[in-house]
Simulated scan of single mutants.
Amino acid sequence: MANVGFVGLGDMGSRMVPHLLNAQHRVFVFDILRERMDAMTTLGAVAADSPAAVARKADVVVSAVMSADIPAAHLGPEGILAGMRAGAALAVVSTMTPASLQSIASAMPAGAHLVDAPLIGGVRYASEASLTVLLAGEGEAMALTEPILARFGKVARVGPLGSGVAYKLITNVVVMAAEAGLREALDLADILGCSYQTTLELLARGPMAAVVKRALDRDNPRPVRDSARDFDVLLAAGGEDNLPISAAGRRRLWDAANAATPPPVFVDLTSHSTALPRFRSGSSQKSRS
């Protein structure tokens, strides 16, 4: 079995590491939050004190940090690349821009391999090892990383380095529009004085059925803020002028993300806690049941 490094133990990473442990890999982990590492070491992982320390131990490193954390996790004296050695491989599964990937690629140590391998699917899919992994890179790099990435679900080889990032952003245009569109449909229900329950039941009978099912899944606790950040990445890559629907959707999801305390998760998009301000929970204006 391989020595595998894993950096980033948030909602997704914490559900992916157990699959590696169950496959008898030796897994070295790092996260900026100690309690996340402790949860993984309880399962059998080995904690490291930096991303570089993870990479020094690993044949394959999987990076699953949020897009804003990519520079700190990968670059600099304590970043992953500082610990990479010739023959080892790095798989970046984060949603990111082509520019972010290029910043990593240009700093890779000689002889080390890089793939971009973004994920399609949420927390439930990570728990069930049913993610789709969009694997991109040169042949040897993909051959090294695919057996590890296959532990998380189905691997789809999508082309040369950068193709995974590109196709992830392309698919996110539709996914993110559906998320914002669901919230806006319920906004209109509020404006017209209609029932959320009836609205969702009717949407679930048509082509939005999968979106509604996902939105109501309480076992898929994706923070709305993470969806809003994915919109930020999408628009950084494509430009607001070129993607006006995505630009409008981002504004609506950020409004929803900031609407409630504690921060709302995805299922809250179907409640009044993320409604337009005058219709939020506690308001005197309520929709008809």
Rank of each mutant, 00 (worst) to 15 (best):
L101Y: 06
V54K: 00
D59N: 07
A166C: 15
V65N: 01
M142D: 03
G159A: 04
G162H: 09
V133F: 01
V174E: 12
T132E: 07
V92D: 11
D59Y: 05
V158S: 02
M96R: 09
T145M: 04
A156Q: 14
A89I: 01
M176G: 15
A72N: 13
M142K: 15
A110F: 06
A89T: 06
M176R: 15
G79Y: 05
G76C: 07
M108F: 02
A166M: 13
L119Y: 00
M84Y: 08
L101K: 08
T132S: 13
E128C: 10
G83A: 07
T97W: 13
I120P: 08
T95D: 05
K154H: 10
E78G: 15
A150R: 00
A141C: 07
V123F: 06
S130C: 12
P147F: 01
A52H: 02
A68W: 10
S106L: 14
D69Q: 15
V175L: 14
A68Y: 12
E140N: 09
G122P: 03
P77S: 11
Y167H: 12
R151T: 02
F152G: 00
A150I: 03
G79P: 10
V54R: 00
G79M: 13
L161C: 11
A82K: 15
A58C: 01
R124F: 12
L119H: 07
K154W: 08
V60A: 01
H113M: 13
G162D: 10
V158G: 06
E138T: 13
A55I: 02
M108E: 06
L131I: 00
A88G: 15
A82Y: 14
G162W: 05
T95W: 05
A117P: 01
S127Q: 14
L149Q: 01
S63D: 08
P147A: 04
D69M: 14
L119Q: 05
V173A: 15
G153C: 05
D116Y: 05
V54T: 07
V65F: 03
S163P: 09
E138H: 11
A156I: 15
E78Q: 14
E146G: 07
P98L: 05
G139R: 15
V155L: 04
P118Y: 00
M96P: 08
A141L: 01
V65G: 02
G79C: 12
I170W: 05
K57G: 09
P98H: 08
D59A: 06
V158D: 07
P147S: 04
G159H: 08
E146W: 02
E146Q: 14
D69N: 15
M66L: 14
L149A: 01
G121Q: 09
T171I: 13
M176N: 14
R124W: 15
A55G: 09
A72C: 09
A107K: 12
G153Q: 10
V54S: 00
A143F: 05
